[in-house]
């Protein structure tokens, strides 16, 4: 079994970090995993995305044309990736940053106002974790607790103070189901 997830948004929305948390969780669960960012000049203030591939066997390509899941944190990401998702796949959309609904009907769509939710918890920057929580709740990739464990185990000492908030964000995101 192999799952590919693209996480995409503006630079500064924490898409690369969210991908790393997912990758750590997969690693701790004994899975094979790759994390690869898009890198380059477009990163400066532009969009930032990464692809995470999780698998039970040696991973071939670290990038895919048709990912099983996409987290779109902003409108350009929704526009870019909606059509690419594999049929039956899952699209998680940050409602706070888009002005339209996805059009595809052959995929599962989770809409949630990640920025608002994160703000309620105390920091808008946790929107990435809200999105990630929603993904795991709607797709059988890893056990839900895996992300929480990964956050606890792999967050640098000086950032440990944010772990609780991020866990809350994951849980709040996990309350949303595909419509």
């Amino acid at each position: 079994m192999q799952t590919e997830v693209i996480i995409s948004g503006f630079g500064g929305q924490g898409t690369l970090y969210a991908g790393q948390v997912l990758a750590y969780a997969a690693m701790d669960e004994g899975k094979q995993v790759t994390w690869i960012p898009s890198y380059g000049p477009e990163m400066r203030g532009g969009t930032a995305n990464c692809t995470v591939v999780i698998s039970d066997e040696e991973i071939g390509s670290p990038t895919v044309k048709h990912p099983k899941a996409v987290l779109a944190l902003n409108l350009p990401s929704l526009d870019k990736y909606e059509d690419m998702i594999a049929p039956g796949g899952c699209l998680v959309v940050n409602e706070s940053m888009v002005n339209r609904k996805p059009e595809r009907t052959d995929i599962r769509v989770v809409m949630l106002p990640a920025n608002e939710i994160a703000r309620e918890i105390g920091n808008e920057r946790a929107a990435n974790m809200v999105m990630l929580g929603a993904l795991l709740a709607n797709m059988d990739i890893l056990p839900n607790e895996a992300l929480e464990k990964a956050l606890k185990n792999h967050t640098a000492q000086r950032l440990q103070k944010f772990v609780e908030m991020n866990i809350q964000a994951l849980r709040r995101g996990g309350e949303y189901r595909a419509s």
Binding site: Q20, M27, I36, P62, T63
Partner: peptide
């Protein structure tokens, strides 16, 4: 190549 340099794996 660039992708291997930038990629993270366990």
């Amino acid at each position: 190549d660039g992708s291997l340099g930038q990629m993270m794996e366990p």
